[in-house]
């Protein structure tokens, strides 16, 4: 049974003291996650880097991956730096195969992502 996607927005500082927006997702990501992903992304500032936190995401199906790609392409269009962390090895591999790494770097955890972005 699918669980609802939840999204929260945090502001953190990167290693240089700059502001970074963190979109934290939890639950499953599927076709019904449109508002949680793209809706939340529209609310964040486009002038600062964005980190996507998937550490509490249990499952992402193909429609969910399509939404992630749409968000990354939107960020790419806005010239916004974007990266993801917290993906399981399974979904790191899936993300790599669908070419997401051309638009966003994948990091194992928040600390690494924060210092690298």
């Amino acid at each position: 049974m699918q669980t609802e996607t939840k999204a929260t927005v945090d502001q953190i500082a990167d290693s240089n003291g700059g502001r970074v927006t963190v979109l934290r997702f939890s639950g499953d990501i599927s076709s019904s996650s449109h508002d949680a992903l793209l809706g939340t992304y529209t609310t964040v500032s486009k002038s600062q880097p964005v980190l996507l936190d998937f550490s509490k995401v249990e499952y992402i199906n193909s429609s969910g991956i399509a939404l992630v790609i749409q968000m990354l392409m939107e960020a790419n269009k806005n010239g916004q730096k974007i990266a993801a962390f917290g993906l399981t090895p399974h979904f790191q591999k899936v993300f790599t195969m669908v070419g997401i790494t051309k638009y966003a770097s994948l990091y194992p955890d928040e600390g690494t992502a924060r210092t690298s972005i």
Binding site: V98, I100, K102
Partner: peptide
Amino acid sequence: NAGHLAPFREGKELPVMGALPLGI
């Protein structure tokens, strides 16, 4: 490959490059 899972050759994954799926 367009975003699909890499085929296996004799039980080993082929090193095909990831790419965006079709239609994006």
